[in-house]
Design a protein around this nucleic acid. Structure first.
Lengths: 346, 346
DNA sequence: CGCCGTCGTGTGAACGTACACATCGACCCT
DNA sequence: AGGGTCGATGTGTACGTTCACACGACGGCG
């Protein structure tokens, strides 16, 4: 008999039970592989399931258990780049392995749209939430929205301690920024500019803090960072402006896209990287190794963050409590966009 | 009374009904905004909903209607780039506007993993499927898996007509490839190489076909295309190889990442783009305008594809039939990586 | 030798909603 | 004036599953 060949209605556990000659409850037990079931009975039920093409009805299951086995992911499109994409994919895989599904909701960053997104997640009865939009306003919206669910935000808030129930986990942005800055300093740079991301983005702020701290450690003076969006376009404009100032020998960009824009601007203005000026990025997107010149940058293991975040929230669902969250260390990828400063700067 | 302050149990329509002094059925009618309900009654019910913090239980609703209001998206990580990301986001927005949710499942491209992904989608009771992994093997797996759902694949299969129930929709890759090729020809190039993507990817094949057709139109001879993955890394290796041959004045890369790798290789080998050789890409990723030199490429409106694909499947859910699917035209973005060939090539 | 615990399985409810139908009053038309 | 229609709301039931509990058989133990 071909599966799914029935009378329109999908088979349910009673059909399976009849086929196997047992009660529906026995089928249910097989489905939830409880003990207390004779191996041969189990076998018979499994065959009946196979033969009937039975597929458990998630809605019915969710209704009676009031568990959706779904994890909500709140993401933002503004940041629709390599990192989030990689993290969400890793979450998907990890969730599937644990028998969970993902409900991904993308949103803007206005309070209204975040509240609306949380509504959508709640109406999907998610059991936990992972937030990939680490923005201050997002946290505020979450705090306001009195939702009572395990919630993890993917950021490394060392200098952005927040009250309330939000826990965070991520690659250590602060440490990454320190690594990048230290690398430039060790090459001999004394005048370093930071082209930073929007400061209401936690990670951007963490990178800035790490940068400032490391400068302080080496008694280097701080030039005002340039603030803008994390795009190549902004990096380009910032680069054009920087060329006019010429009061630096190295630039630490808050991400690789910005760094690409900087490379473009410097090139347009006749500055050679790394001969005249060094540039370092952040993220290590796959393209970074093929920028001109290949970009020195800080690699984040996004996949690990995604995987781990799912483990964390599932642990929280089961135990009701978030464990200790240890940040992941980034690694420095030295390529060709950094070099010792020209002699005039030593 | 604060919402959600109850006794553990979430309020249901009966609670709301009691609060409003009506029957639960009346509440149900308000929820599904049917007519035949007196405005003042409706108002009273809405207030009761507000006061109780009631939120409809999707599981119960899905159980009784046997409709999940969920659209499944089958995506592949191998292609975890700008295009899919943008499309999925647009789908999300469009689906939400129509009262649907998305269930995104990412997968490898082996038959086994695709079957498994389809299983997962079916177990989530999706009402339609959008496939963002336009690979031949994916279609075969779909055909095998006797799933009886509206299904749209996001590709432009002109030269890959397939049997069965799979309909396709996308930006016209064939036309885009023709536009790119024509642009090079109009600049005066007679010897053009195509660095192609994997030919079991429909879009990669369509681009190749468009390229070949346009060459034929102008009686130009065809050099063997180079086949590989759609990454900067592969573009770089292909570029190194091409430099040794030197039997071309222009390269059409199957996507922007590949083009970036080519730029890198040519630069490494002392070839100037576009002076010595022209390079054109495909996609117009946001970074492309800041490559060195800024990349001439073919822009696809991914967001439109995402939006439209959701409209299409929702239409199919409602009416049971897919409408006519008209491909979206891409646009040529001329920047600085293409120029007339050096005199030796004229 | 009878009692009780355990194993394996079955029976009755309940989850929260929507659909089909029933009810009840008011209004219209002849 | 009375039957029919329609508009507004209420009542019963079903969806497919799991949980709590009941039940019979079997074995060990006092």
């Amino acid at each position: 008999m071909p599966p799914e060949a029935g009378k329109g209605r999908a088979p349910n556990i009673r059909d399976v039970a009849a086929l196997a000659g047992v009660s529906y409850q026995t089928v249910s037990r097989v489905l939830n592989d409880s003990e207390r079931i004779r191996p041969e009975t189990k076998q018979r039920v499994l065959e009946a399931i196979e033969e009937s093409g039975f597929r458990p009805n998630q809605a019915a299951r969710a209704l009676v258990t009031s568990r959706s086995r779904t994890i909500g992911v709140l993401s933002t499109h503004q940041h629709a780049h390599f990192g989030p994409q990689t993290m969400v994919h890793a979450m998907e895989v990890a969730a599937a392995a644990a028998g969970y599904s993902l409900a991904v909701v993308t949103t803007g960053t206005t309070p209204a749209s975040i509240v609306e997104a949380l509504e959508r997640l709640q109406s999907q009865a998610v059991e936990a939430v992972i937030v990939v939009a680490p923005k201050v306003s997002v946290f505020e919206a979450i705090e306001d929205s009195s939702l009572d669910l395990p919630l993890v935000t993917l950021d490394s808030s060392i200098h952005n301690k927040r009250p309330g129930r939000t826990h965070s986990f991520a690659v250590d942005q602060y440490e990454g920024a320190r690594m990048a800055t230290r690398h430039l300093i060790e090459l001999g740079h004394r005048s370093i500019i930071h082209v930073a991301g929007p400061q209401d983005w936690i990670e951007a702020d963490e990178r800035m803090q790490g940068f400032l701290f490391e400068l302080g450690e080496h008694d280097l003076s701080v030039r005002a960072p340039i603030l803008g969006e994390l795009s190549a376009e902004f990096g380009y404009r910032a680069g054009l402006e920087l060329v006019r100032r010429r009061d630096f020998s190295a630039v630490f960009a808050a991400n690789d896209h910005m760094a690409l824009g900087l490379l473009h601007a410097f090139r347009d203005e006749g500055l050679s990287v790394p001969h005249d000026v060094s540039v370092i990025g952040f993220d290590d997107v796959p393209d970074a190794a093929h920028y001109l010149p290949p970009l020195t940058t800080v690699r984040q293991d996004f996949a690990a963050v995604g995987r781990r975040s799912v483990e964390i929230v599932i642990g929280a669902i089961d135990s009701g409590t978030l464990g200790e969250l240890e940040l992941i260390r980034p690694t420095l990828m030295v390529r060709e966009s950094t070099a010792p400063p020209p002699s005039a700067w030593r």
